[in-house]
């Protein structure tokens, strides 16, 4: 994405011509640019420092944190924090190290988070794609009216539907189940339908009609033609959905009560409330926080470019 204003000048002659034609180079170094870079460096540090601090604290011995609060490196480096998070210490060991002593096993929550986010992502993207195809390519009565009705859903703040949805999930007997957490966002979001419809509308109709003339059904066209041609937007939507589902707290907090359905965000809150009130187990808490954050950070490292470029005005959530 290196969009420079002036084409790179390779020879002296070129650069002279470039200088004559181009306005003064905006990238030249000056006091203003130095200040601007200094500001951006502060922004970069502010963005990344908390992550370093999580790691530094998680790798410290909790009891040593009190004496070494100004140490920028892990104090008495130890895996103790992570061991408590994954239930590898006995109760007494954990208490001695400054932890809560209750057994806690983040593997379970990690698994729950993966299951919920996967259900939501796969379901939401697939069902939204089906609907988007119907809105973009199929011929049926009142199509535009139905689409407008769907889009009206964008106006409803998510937060308003949480309480009544909880009542519904309870009536369905799905409280404290992973399906109960996933279900309300598993079938569609107006945004996903809108986003994919826009893309499907842009696919050339000729390929599709050629396939239809060859005798393919529209279902086949959807699965064999439209979906494979849309892997890029589907992947982008899928990644964004996965991240927001992984980070969801409020809804999951309402629905899950026990380890059976506890996802990482909720478990983190519970873990925090269990820690000794005087002298919290910061090493353990930061280890848990890091465990909750790490999968998304890894996902981000892999898909950084796609995620960064997806944020714009076609990607408003």
């Amino acid at each position: 994405m290196a969009t420079t204003t002036a084409p790179p000048a390779t020879t002296i002659g070129d650069s002279i011509i470039a200088r004559v034609v181009e306005p003064p180079d905006p990238k030249r170094f000056g006091i203003g640019r130095a200040f601007a870079w200094a500001f951006m460096i502060v922004v970069i540090l502010a963005s990344l420092f908390p992550f370093y601090w999580m790691l530094r604290t998680a790798l410290s011995s909790n009891n040593a944190l009190y004496a070494g609060s100004d140490n920028l490196l892990p104090v008495q480096p130890s895996w103790g924090g992570f061991e408590r998070v994954f239930g590898l210490q006995t109760g007494q060991e954990a208490i001695d190290a400054g932890g809560a002593g209750q057994p806690i096993a983040f593997w379970r929550y990690l698994l729950n988070s993966v299951v919920v986010s996967t259900l939501v992502t796969v379901g939401q993207v697939f069902f939204s794609a089906m609907a988007a195809y119907a809105f973009a390519r199929l011929e049926w009565k009142h199509r535009e009216k139905w689409f407008a009705f769907f889009l009206g859903g964008l106006m409803i703040p998510a937060i308003f539907t949480l309480l009544p949805n909880f009542v519904l999930i309870k009536q369905l007997g799905l409280v404290d189940t992973l399906l109960g957490i996933a279900l309300p966002s598993m079938l569609m979001t107006p945004f996903a339908v809108f986003f994919l419809r826009q893309f499907f509308l842009g696919i050339s109709k000729e390929v599709e009609e050629a396939a239809l003339i060859d005798g393919a059904s529209k279902i086949r066209v959807f699965f064999r033609l439209i979906l494979p041609m849309s892997t890029a937007p589907i992947a982008t939507l899928g990644i964004l959905t996965y991240i927001s589902s992984w980070n969801e707290y409020f809804w999951a907090l309402m629905v899950s009560y026990t380890d059976k359905s506890r996802v990482l965000t909720v478990a983190l809150g519970v873990f925090k409330s269990q820690t000794p009130q005087t002298g919290p187990d910061w090493a353990g808490l930061m280890a848990a926080t890091l465990v909750a954050a790490l999968p998304m950070l890894l996902l981000f490292i892999v898909f950084a470019k796609r995620i960064v470029n997806s944020i714009g005005f076609s990607g408003i959530k």
Binding site: M1, L268, G269, L285, M286, T289, A293, V308, I311
Partner: peptide, 24 residues
């Protein structure tokens, strides 16, 4: 306009509010 800078600035958005609250 390089992506790495936008990526760094976006990093905090990738973690949950819960994680942000805990670390602060």
């Amino acid at each position: 306009k390089r992506t790495w800078l936008r990526g760094i600035v976006l990093t905090p958005y990738l973690v949950s509010n819960v994680v942000a609250a805990m670390v602060f």
